[in-house]
């Protein structure tokens, strides 16, 4: 019988120590802010929470006139538009977040080779009803609140209580939790490509893509206006080899994507 602790420890140790690991530094003083502005170490992520320290970083960039790209910057404070250009010129990438993973989990995630498939934090914008999420590779995805639908038993997300937990693989909105893969599948084309090469390798056709997207949207085959459910079934099962363009247009519209994107799912 496998021992829970033995197997977990070996899996765990295999995944740490990635050569391209990033090291987070929480900027808590004026001196550290000044250092962040001039450091050329591309493996450091500077995390700044206090607005006056963000200002200091921007001031130092302007003063020292360092143009070589440095590491990464995560801003947990509201950044005024005026200081965004110098920050974006100076750092390899700048992430704006209202919430990030706990410090020890951030360090762990940035040591993992699959950090791009995890979220390090994000920022909720209630005006536009969107959530911008930052992946561990500093790419962002912006998703509408509607990407987090209520469950069949009525559990709804509370966007005022947003956080990222479980090493960037779970998005939490109060009592509601979302698997990060559900969001990456819908909003990150590179993640979908990877899934198609691995998990979906045996089910690659356009029909399979339509079926996956329909299921992800929680739709039945009866919900495509003017298209019979049997027609949808034939397309999904690959029995209809050349569906009409107008049919695919309708399917794409109901599924909320462009026709040319259908096959990517």
């Amino acid at each position: 019988m496998n021992s829970v602790s033995e197997t977990s420890a070996s899996t765990y140790s295999r995944r740490v120590g990635h050569a391209g690991a990033l090291t987070p530094i929480w900027v808590s003083s004026q001196e550290q802010a000044a250092e962040a502005a001039v450091s050329e170490d591309k493996h450091i992520v500077w995390i700044v929470k206090k607005p006056h320290l963000v200002d200091r970083v921007a001031y130092e960039i302007a003063t020292v006139k360092t143009y070589k790209k440095g590491g990464y910057l995560v801003l947990l404070a509201n950044a005024r538009p005026a200081i965004i250009p110098p920050l974006e010129r100076r750092f390899t990438a700048v992430a704006f977040a209202s919430s990030v993973l706990p410090a020890e989990e951030l360090q762990e995630v940035w040591s993992l080779p699959d950090r791009g498939e995890r979220f390090i934090g994000g920022i909720v914008d209630e005006s536009s009803t969107t959530l911008t999420l930052w992946r561990g590779n500093f790419e962002s995805v912006t998703v509408p609140f509607g990407a987090f639908p209520p469950t069949g038993n009525g559990i709804r997300p509370d966007f005022k209580r947003f956080s990222v937990i479980e090493y960037g693989q779970t998005l939490k909105f109060g009592e509601y939790e979302s698997d990060s893969e559900a969001i990456l599948f819908e909003f990150a084309a590179d993640f979908r490509r990877k899934l198609k090469q691995t998990r979906f390798a045996e089910d690659q056709g356009l029909g399979a893509s339509i079926r996956r997207l329909r299921r992800q949207r929680r739709l039945s085959r009866n919900e495509f206006v003017n298209i019979d459910a049997k027609t949808i079934a034939r397309i999904e099962q690959g029995k209809s080899k050349n569906p009409r363009a107008a049919t695919l247009e309708t399917i794409a519209r109901v599924l909320g994507v462009q026709k040319k994107e259908l096959a990517s799912y």
């Binding site: 765990y12 639908p149 509601y176 939790e177 698997d179 969001i183 992800q216």
Partner: peptide, 16 residues
Amino acid sequence: FDNELLCEEPHVTIVF
């Protein structure tokens, strides 16, 4: 989870 990758069959996620 409350929001899952539904394009695949029903499942549980084992987390360590």
